[in-house]
Amino acid sequence: MTRITSMKPVGERAIRIGFEERISEETNRYIAALCKAIEEQVHPAVTEWVPAYASLTVYYKPETSGFDEMKSFLESCVKDVHDLEGEGGRVIGIPVLYGGEGGPDLSELASHHGMDEEEVIRLHSEGDYLVYMLGFNPGFPYLGGLSDKLHTPRRDNPRQNVPAGSVGIAGEQTGIYPLASPGGWQLIGRTPARLFDPEQPDAFLLRAGDRLRFRPVDEKEYDDLCSRVENGEQIVEVEEGEHAH
């Protein structure tokens, strides 16, 4: 049973709904359902909200509603949350070219775990990952579900420039860089998919609650997908969940 542990002000323009401080799929589903309840209620003061692992932060206009009013509104949304069963998120297939130029740390990571590269690719692409939240950079997914056989510390020397689309591992997490940026993740591959593209009507590929799978591709397919992305094509496989919108 997911329980709300606190509702606290974040300054005068936001309120943070806190849950038990742990990562769980159940809490994630609950938060998604609560977001939906808030969206359906359409409160004039609410401007946006940010779901996270164990919290939901709701931003609002204090000139329209004060803290106490906002708190009662959110309490009423909580009462509206029911029937989490059957709420299926989308399943997204991300093509990845493992190793080579885009995955310079693959072989070292494999030997760190006493495996060969194929084993790492197999374990990584067999995984079923949940997008718990997005943040840090536009479109960056915080993913759960990495095999514990692949948990690897960050690099001692972060790279100055990690290209967009790089797929990496850091500690217990795996993720994809949406933008070129400095970073210390172990890079094992690269995807041609764009996680953030302001030119597209849906600027963000992923949203919290999505399930994600990595699909290994060879160099020929990778190059082909890259040129299709250049032409503005959507190359990612999206399966809508049972009751997904």
Binding site: V10, G11, R16, R22, A52, Y53
Partner: peptide, 10 residues
């Protein structure tokens, strides 16, 4: 902490 949202002025 488990990552959570920030605000202007946090």
């Amino acid at each position: 902490i488990l990552s959570d949202a920030t605000a202007f002025g946090s």
